[in-house]
């Protein structure tokens, strides 16, 4: 009994404070989480809309699609279907994640309705080095993916960046970040294509 009294005497303030502070955080989180989730959704939809010009609205086509990652790790993503004003499939978009130079890079990648070519990508979040790795957001790099065949792509040190093919010209001074983006594409493309084909969701039904 003496020990319990001693324990309570010593720690009551800590216990009460932990409860009070926990409650404070829970209330704040409950109040703000709808807005935070909305912000995240808004950003994602804004980026997807920028990639698929004909998109009028988006709907989740496949939820929790499993993508085999590196070292046996399984990544999960949702595939969104873009629908144009006539209600026709205008393409697909999905969030893809991979390791960058400083931190994880989160991309939104869009493909056409038949999953034959990329519409391009936008960076959802990244902490790449300002002035170097951060150039993955710039048109010189991102435009190379626009209309490129939706298959295995490879990074080349030199070439014609204006030519649309499977060769992506690296950003000078940001090889690691350029490689990271290409790896992210290659990790996801095949699996996404297979899943969409298996579920018969491609525009031509194949």
């Amino acid at each position: 009994m003496g020990k319990i009294t001693h324990f309570i005497e010593q720690s009551w303030l800590l216990i009460v404070s932990a409860f009070f502070f926990g409650l404070l955080i829970a209330i704040t989180n409950a109040g703000l989480s709808p807005r935070i989730e909305q912000n995240e959704r808004d950003k994602l939809f804004k980026l997807m809309g920028g990639l698929i010009a004909d998109a009028n609205s988006f709907e989740v086509s496949l939820e929790g699609v499993e993508i085999p990652g590196r070292k046996g790790k399984v990544l999960k993503t949702d595939i969104y279907k873009a629908v144009d004003k006539a209600g026709v499939n205008a393409g697909f978009a999905y969030v893809a994640i991979g390791a960058g130079f400083a931190d994880k890079i989160k991309l939104v990648i869009a493909v056409d309705g038949k999953c034959e070519k990329f519409f391009g990508f936008r960076v959802l979040s990244s902490n790449e080095t300002p002035g170097f790795g951060s150039k993955i957001k710039e048109e010189f790099f991102s435009d190379q993916f626009k209309d490129a065949p939706a298959g295995e792509i490879k990074l080349v040190k030199a070439g014609d960046a204006g030519k649309i093919d499977t060769d992506i010209v690296t950003i000078s001074g940001a090889t690691v970040s350029s490689e990271a983006v290409v790896k992210i594409f290659n990790t996801y493309t095949d699996s996404i294509k297979k899943q969409l084909t298996a579920k018969g969701l491609l525009a031509d039904g194949k």
Partner: peptide
Amino acid sequence: HLRILMFTLAIATFVTIADLFLKAF
């Protein structure tokens, strides 16, 4: 002996709140 623990508890709470507000607004 609980001084630093109490400080950290209080600080962590307000930092979490500040972080949530930033994410929201």
